[in-house]
Amino acid sequence: MTSDDHVLWQLFRAGDKQALGVLAERYYRALKHYGLKFMVDGAVVEDCIQELFLQLWQNRLQINETESVRHYLLKGLRHHILQHLRSQKRVQYDELDWDTSVVADVDSETLLIRQETLVNLTKTIQDQLALLPAREREALYLRFYEDLSIPEIAEVMNVNRQSVSNFLQKALSKLRNQWLVHAFLTICIFFQKNLL
């Protein structure tokens, strides 16, 4: 985590409301992005974020130092969303949905890939990912998009570290097959073109 987050966190715990504001602004997009994954309405996610910061403020005297503010906030938000879903009787056994809708228009040119290739690839991987259990997808997201460590993911998802490792291993091995198939196909096409 940045030393800056650390300083702001300390200020906030000491009663500095503005410091909490800076953190809210900094992590707002990340929190909303994560919250929307649980297939809840945007307005609900925003309410949950509001609730999260209000509760942080009320409990500031009991809150400890944290290694990473990002992971602390994500964990808090997940909790609030789970609470909301429970109150709506939408979840049982703590199983959460995970959204798989993909970015609509990707600027392939900027990313140095041909549009067609990228569209095909995302489609294939998308289909593969949609088959994975929600928890594996969430673990992938937290690991690679949010850059959290395995112990941090374990805390956020409220499971033990071994489970997180398992989620990631399983998800990656399924994806790996997909990657290999794709590589194989490219080689086939390459040979085919050469033969013709």
């Binding site: 992005h33 993909v102 690839l121 991987i125 990912l129 997201y141 690679f144 994806l175 990657w179």
Partner: peptide
């Protein structure tokens, strides 16, 4: 590289 970009975008989502 292309597969990595695509995978990342899918994980990232909307």
């Amino acid at each position: 590289y292309e597969q990595a970009v695509a995978t990342f975008l899918v994980i990232q989502g909307k």
